[in-house]
């Protein structure tokens, strides 16, 4: 039992953003959430983290409805890294990763030796140990993202939610980050933009469109030219080589017509 959205729906101001989503997430697996901008990826992640209440349906964490658990209970088992993590304060990297230990102790109690050890090990896992005494403000985008994931790992989660962790990173840092994430033993659900990265680093993919699950399955089952045309409005070739599956974009399809018409134009 891991994180289980069952017919999860979220609407705000009369607009349905996440529409009846049911996903099976195998414990220990890495699941990629795909979909164009506005398809509901970030909102679904917030539902999975219990940060927003479902309008209908339920999200279960380890078998229990997440709405019935205390914030602290959730935070001890599930960690989330948002797309942008901005602050006005000037914390050190050690301060930031240390935040991940908060769910494990009373708010007035001091850091224990175990807390410090967990921070050190999370920092080492995300290759940020050399940054511990640096100011978070002075880090590059890639370093900040690794620090945030280290903070999440310091929570000792069994479930890890990442919202476009490779945003604003250069290619090398994107790949490095995804490899590190892939190596963690947690069950990971992450929103991704890059389809090739999704194909390479995820066990399963879920494609959202208009808040609904359009397709779900192994990367090869999901990433087909037909789906890319329908959901993303692009013509693409999907190739397989010894390195895995590759999506090559051909062109953006003209808007406004049916897929068949668009492909034939």
């Amino acid at each position: 039992m891991s994180i289980e959205p069952r017919d999860a729906t979220w609407s705000t101001r009369g607009t349905v953003i996440v529409d009846g989503v049911t996903i099976d997430v195998a414990p220990g697996s890495t699941v990629g959430l795909l979909g164009p901008n506005g398809s509901g990826k970030s909102s679904l992640l917030r539902l999975l983290a219990g940060l927003r209440p479902t309008s209908s349906g339920v999200v279960r964490l380890g078998g229990d409805p997440i709405a019935g658990l205390s914030r602290r209970q959730v935070a001890r088992r599930l960690a989330m890294v948002e797309q942008e993590s901005a602050t006005d304060a000037d914390p050190t990297v050690r301060d930031v990763i240390g935040l991940g230990r908060l769910p494990h102790r009373a708010p007035w109690s001091p850091e224990t030796a175990n807390d410090r050890a967990m921070v050190a090990s999370a920092a080492a896992t995300m290759r940020t140990a050399h940054l511990l005494d640096r100011s978070y403000m002075t880090l590059s985008g890639g370093e900040r993202q690794r620090v945030q994931i280290a903070r999440a790992l310091a929570q000792e989660p069994t479930e890890l939610l990442l919202d476009e962790p490779t945003n604003h990173l250069d290619v090398r840092h994107q790949l490095e980050l995804l490899e590190l994430v892939r190596a963690t033993p947690t069950t990971t659900v992450m929103a991704l933009h890059d389809l090739n990265h999704a194909a390479t680093y995820c066990d399963r993919l879920v494609v959202l469109d208009g808040g609904r699950v359009h397709a779900a399955g192994r990367p090869a089952e999901v990433l087909t030219p037909a789906l890319l045309a329908e959901v993303y409005g692009v013509e693409a070739v999907v190739e397989t080589s010894e390195h895995g599956l590759h999506v090559r974009y051909v062109r953006a399809l003209p808007t406004g017509a049916s897929v068949e018409e668009r492909m034939s134009r």
Binding site: A75, S85, A86, T87, L99, L102, P107, W108
Partner: peptide
Amino acid sequence: AAAGTLDAFTFGQDAAASLGVS
């Protein structure tokens, strides 16, 4: 007594909530 809770707000409300703060 709320020191740790105040720390949790470093990256905003949602971040605080996901660190276990009501």
